[in-house]
Measured scan of single mutants.
Amino acid sequence: EVTIKANLIFANGSTQTAEFKGTFEKATSEAYAYADTLKKDNGEYTVDVADKGYTLNAKFAG
């Protein structure tokens, strides 16, 4: 089991951190699915991958 950390950075400057656990593939998929649920209210996002894929920095356009 691994933990994927998602740093969510919103256009207004606020941030949120979420963690997803499971296999690498499952946890990564859940992190992206969570970011997708936030698109409606926060706009499209881009992701910078860090820490060999164990940290995802998602920046929302607003």
Rank of each mutant, 00 (worst) to 15 (best):
V2F: 05
T3H: 05
T3R: 07
T3E: 05
T3L: 09
T3F: 06
I4Y: 01
I4N: 00
I4E: 00
I4V: 10
I4Q: 00
K5V: 14
K5P: 01
K5I: 14
K5E: 04
A6Y: 05
A6T: 10
A6D: 02
A6K: 00
A6N: 03
N7Q: 07
L8G: 03
L8T: 02
I9T: 11
I9W: 10
I9V: 10
F10L: 10
F10Y: 06
A11R: 07
N12T: 08
N12C: 10
N12Y: 05
N12E: 05
N12V: 03
G13R: 02
G13V: 02
G13M: 05
G13Y: 04
G13I: 02
T15Y: 11
T15S: 11
T15D: 04
T15Q: 12
T15W: 11
Q16A: 12
Q16S: 11
Q16D: 08
Q16T: 12
Q16M: 14
T17R: 09
T17V: 13
A18I: 15
A18V: 15
E19K: 08
E19Q: 10
E19L: 14
E19S: 11
F20H: 00
K21F: 13
K21D: 04
G22W: 03
G22C: 06
G22I: 03
T23W: 05
T23I: 07
F24P: 05
E25A: 11
K26E: 13
K26M: 11
K26F: 11
K26Q: 14
K26L: 11
K26W: 11
A27H: 02
A27W: 05
A27C: 06
A27M: 01
T28Y: 11
S29R: 14
S29E: 14
E30L: 14
E30D: 14
E30T: 06
A31C: 06
Y32L: 14
Y32P: 01
Y32N: 02
A33C: 08
A33K: 12
Y34L: 08
Y34F: 12
Y34E: 02
Y34Q: 00
Y34T: 02
A35C: 15
A35Q: 01
A35R: 00
A35V: 15
D36E: 12
D36F: 02
D36N: 10
T37F: 13
L38Q: 07
L38C: 09
K39D: 00
K39A: 12
K39Y: 05
K40N: 10
K40D: 10
D41S: 11
D41F: 12
D41I: 12
D41P: 04
N42S: 07
N42T: 01
N42V: 04
G43I: 01
G43N: 01
G43F: 02
E44S: 11
E44K: 07
Y45Q: 02
Y45P: 02
Y45E: 02
Y45L: 05
Y45W: 05
Y45M: 05
T46Y: 09
T46R: 09
V47P: 03
V47E: 02
V47T: 06
D48G: 08
D48L: 12
V49F: 12
V49Y: 09
V49G: 03
A50I: 11
A50C: 13
A50N: 08
A50W: 09
D51K: 01
D51A: 02
K52H: 15
K52W: 12
G53Q: 03
G53F: 01
Y54C: 11
Y54I: 06
T55C: 07
L56R: 00
N57W: 10
N57E: 07
N57M: 07
A58M: 15
A58S: 04
K59A: 10
K59D: 05
F60L: 00
F60Y: 13
F60Q: 04
F60E: 03
A61M: 13
A61R: 12
A61E: 14
G62D: 08
G62Y: 07
